[in-house]
Nucleic acid binder design. Structure first.
Lengths: 208, 208
DNA sequence: GCTTCAATAGCTAATATTAGCTATTGGTAA
DNA sequence: TTACCAATAGCTAATATTAGCTATTGAAGC
């Protein structure tokens, strides 16, 4: 018997989730709320195994609520549900420790599937969301369409490590002026105008 | 009709995968090989929609093979299959552009599910592997032992994006001098002495 | 042989950054 | 209530960076 609590500020949706849970004999609805302001007290009282958490809610959003919850009750599973496949939100939810992420357009089968996956120790998410997560890693590997020369790459690496122009000149054994010139080319090729941007790209592109 | 090519150095497994594919009417086995040394030629000749790729193979491992493939044929889907839930391998596979990752212990249903998920534009993976991927984000974000304040973190993020002190002042709505001071503190806490180092740490710690 | 280009070296003016200070406000913990 | 500290604002001198030039050498490609 899986003990479930729902947080969702949209009443009709809360009702339909409640109906869904009551249909299956192995789910037990412990409670449902329109906001997660009292999530710690709720959790203490109702001891849910799993929480279905909306993101957009008044007072405190679901990700913030989950963050607070997880600090005290790290073992309570959380499935985030939201209206959009918002990359930013997905990543934030993951970082806050969500076990699952489903869309509000999910079918009953998809929702129960996600719950079951999570309760069996996996991650509950649709293939399309899983792909977004994977693509986050991938983003970086599509790297270097910048065709920097070897020297330019080497110097960018040193820059990205925090060395100054002079230090790079010493380390690589070329003059300060030459370092200057190489960096100039790097900036042109990367189409950036500051060290910060250049280092950011260097890291994104895994040049370091 | 989905055109599939198999790479696996283990003959019995290749045979069983072939049998599996021949069972379903919507899959067509275009070819199967014990190594991926000729993957570019194979792909040109057989034009697969999807490749089932073993990792451990003689000559060239499956991830390296996929990396080469994806440079020329980025649209050919690849599902990596391996014997273990090896975190490192999963992440490497993602970074090289895999669309799916399944275990050799996967059931026929799980394999066909993964293939279908991938061909429908999602990611093919079991919930347990999906969770590992999610946990990867988690690991990183918890990495910050620097205890920067919110403002300091925000400013560091902007710095890491390439904004100048002035631009940050404008964007955040505080004075140029204050930006200066925050960055000073950030440098102290991070124990660095240049923008490059600070941005490097920001990226390593996934503050961006 | 000619051309292109990466790598090297040099210079300079305009900005930006770094690091050294002081000081006020508002919130919070002892 | 006092003490601390994050956030804010301000100043300045010493360096560092950015971007605008010119110019030589050597290797690769045509």
């Amino acid at each position: 018997m899986i003990n479930i609590v729902i947080y969702d500020d949209h009443k009709p949706r809360r009702d339909s989730l409640e109906a869904l849970l009551s249909l299956a004999s192995n789910y037990h609805l412990a409670g449902s709320f329109a906001d997660c302001l009292n999530i710690l007290e709720d959790t203490k009282r109702l001891t849910p195994d799993l929480i279905l958490m909306d993101i957009e809610m008044p007072g405190m959003n679901g990700i913030e609520g989950m963050r607070i919850l997880k600090q005290v009750y790290p073992d309570v599973k959380v499935i985030i549900q939201t209206a959009f496949e918002d990359d930013e939100k997905i990543f934030k939810a993951m970082q806050a420790g969500a076990e699952g992420y489903i869309l509000k357009t999910a079918t009953i089968q998809q929702i129960t599937q996600a719950i079951d996956d999570v309760m069996q120790g996996g991650a509950g998410m649709s293939p399309s969301i899983a792909l977004k997560v994977m693509r986050y890693f991938n983003k970086q590997s599509s790297a270097k369409g910048y065709q920097l020369t070897d020297k330019e790459t080497a110097i960018l690496k040193e820059l990205a490590q925090g060395l100054s122009y002079k230090m790079i000149a010493d380390k690589i054994g070329i003059s300060y002026f030459t370092v200057n010139n190489h960096i100039k080319r790097v900036y042109e090729k990367l189409q950036v105008h500051s060290l910060g941007e250049a280092v950011a790209i260097a890291h994104k592109e895994k040049l370091v």
